Simulated assay, not measured.
Amino acid sequence: MKKSKIAVVTGGSRGLGRDMAVNLAKKGLDVVLTYQSNVTAAQEVVAEIEALGQKAAAIPLDVSDYEAYEPFFRERLQPALAEKFGTSTIDYLVNNAGSISPAPFADASISDFKDMIHIHLMAPFFITQQALKIMNDGGGIVNISTGLTRFATPGFAAYAAMKGGVEVLTKYMARELGQRKIRTNVVAPGAIETDIMGGFVRDNAGMNETIAAETALGRVGLPTDIGAVVAFLCTDEAYWINAQRIEVSGGVHI
C-alpha cells in the first residue's frame, strides 16, 4: 500500500486551520496539527481525521515564541513522527497559526506590532527553516496571508504589513527552494466567519452584512471555503503552481 504523505498545519485546532487539516486528510494525507492551548479541540480534529482513515497527531506550539521552534521539531515533532507515522520526514508545511490585534494606525502600540512580527512574519520564516531539515524534496509550503494586502481596511495596518511581508517571503522561498523541487504558495482569505477577534465577522450582524454587500458572491467567507484550496496545493495535481498568491475571498472589493 502506498504510504501517505504528511502535512504539518500550524494552528490546526480551530477555524481555518481545522478545515485545512480535515481537507488534507480528505486528500489522503496524514496530518500533524499544532495548537496553542486547547488540547480538547485539537484532539477532536485528530479524531475527525482518523475517522477519515488517515493518521493524525496534535502537538502544542506557541508560534509567538521563536525560541520554541527548534525544540518543537527536535523534542516533539520528530518523536511523534517516529512513533505514530513510522517516519522521520514530512512533505508539506502550512503556516496558518495567527491572531489579530486591530488598532487604528495612529494608536497601534509597539507591543502589538512586535506580537504581529513574531506571529505572522518570524514564525513562517523560522518555522519553515526548521521544517526544511526534515522535509522531503518535492514537497511544498503554503503560507497564509489575507485579502487585506490588496485592499486597505482601517485598523489592520500592522497585521496587513506582516502579511505583505509573508507574500514577498513566499516568492523568495519558491525561488530558493526550487532546487529541491519544493513549491511555495500563499493563500489569502477574505473576511471569514471564525472566532478570531471574538467572532468579529461571524457574530457582528452589521459587519457581516457590510462585507457581504461588498463581495461579488454576496456573502462573507466560511472556513470551509479555504481548507480545500490549501489541501489542493498540497497534492501532485498542483505541482506546477509555484510562487503564487491565490486570494480566496468570493470577489470582495473588486
Rank of each mutant, 00 (worst) to 15 (best):
V230F: 00
K181R: 14
L233W: 02
E237Y: 12
V32F: 09
V9Y: 01
V230M: 13
V186Q: 00
K181V: 05
H253L: 13
I211Q: 00
G250E: 06
V252G: 06
A157N: 14
R74P: 07
D62W: 12
T224H: 07
N23Y: 11
T153Q: 15
V230W: 04
I100H: 03
K84I: 02
K5I: 05
I90A: 01
T34H: 11
Q43W: 06
A51R: 15
N136G: 00
M116N: 07
R18H: 12
G139M: 05
I144V: 15
R202H: 08
N208T: 13
I141C: 01
V187S: 13
A41W: 12
G218L: 04
A56L: 13
D19M: 13
S249F: 04
M173S: 02
A213W: 05
A80D: 08
E167F: 02
I59N: 13
G190D: 03
A68N: 02
K27M: 14
F126C: 08
H118N: 07
A131K: 13
M135G: 04
V248C: 05
P223A: 09
T34W: 10
I141Y: 04
L121S: 02
E214V: 05
E167Y: 06
I241Y: 01
F232H: 10
K5T: 05
S101F: 06
D91F: 07
P60A: 04
G198P: 06
E247F: 09
V166F: 12
N96R: 07
N96F: 09
G17I: 01
M1E: 00
L33G: 01
K27T: 08
H120N: 15
L77M: 01
N95L: 02
T170C: 15
I117K: 00
G190C: 05
I241S: 03
A216T: 14
G251W: 11
E214R: 10
I110Q: 12
T146D: 15
A7H: 05
Y159T: 10
S109C: 06
P71W: 14
A158D: 00
T128I: 11
L132F: 10
A157Q: 15
T149D: 02
L169V: 03
G17M: 02
D112T: 05
Y66F: 10
I110M: 05
T40N: 15
F85T: 10
A174S: 15
L52W: 11
K55H: 11
M135Q: 01
A68G: 05
V39W: 03
A7Q: 05
G17E: 09
A25W: 00
M122F: 15
N96Q: 06
C234P: 00
H120L: 14
T235S: 12
M197Q: 14
F85C: 08
A216Y: 13
G221Q: 03
V248K: 12
Y35W: 07
W240S: 09
A152G: 03
K26W: 10
T210F: 01
V39R: 09
R202N: 08
V168Q: 08
E48R: 10
S101I: 08
F85I: 03
G12Q: 00
G86T: 12
G139L: 07
I134M: 05
D91A: 04
Y69C: 11
